[in-house]
Design a protein around this nucleic acid. Structure first.
Lengths: 80, 80
DNA sequence: TTTTAAAATGACAAATATGTCAGTAATAAA
DNA sequence: TTTATTACTGACATATTTGTCATTTTAAAA
């Protein structure tokens, strides 16, 4: 039995997700405000890694940037 | 501006996630109860697609099955 | 058909995300 | 340094997930 920690927020993961989203937004030159106006997603608190977003929310973000969820996680590999 | 629907639960996505988890559990011959005992994650309500789980929770599930998040989403591609 | 194991559903409290605004800090341009 | 833009933080109500059990339904085995 692995020492799985259940749903407890995985901060390292959230930080990487935050970074990735920041990158996508930078590449596409979209401001947080633009993003909010287009999606109603308050991305600031996501980009600071404070929020453990749902898969639906992440999916919406990926769709906005035309990237698949699989690609989104491509360079995100957490061990613990 | 795309007709993004914000964080509203994406049922089609949740169904596919549910299926994928079911598959993983079948492949590994783990019962929901075993899974629960090992992870404290109540997977039944996830496998019925009723819950829009967080990325941390999904990450825990993937770790349990030794699969990356990127691989998990490999065959999950939703348009809308 | 009865027993047994597994899956699905339901309930409930506590924690947390989400939607929405407003306000502050940081950065860049004039 | 002032102005303008963008990023970050905080707050609050509402909705939803999560943790935990218990119960019902389904399916498989005896």
């Amino acid at each position: 039995m692995l020492p799985i920690m259940g749903q407890i927020r995985n901060d390292k993961l959230l930080k990487l997700i935050a970074l990735k989203i920041k990158e996508l937004r930078a590449e596409n030159e979209i401001s947080q405000e633009d993003f909010y106006n287009d999606t109603n997603i308050h991305i600031a608190r996501i980009e600071t890694g404070k929020i453990n977003i749902s898969v639906s929310t992440l999916h919406s973000i990926c769709r906005y940037f035309n990237i698949s969820l699989s690609d989104f996680f491509m360079d995100i590999n957490i061990v613990s």
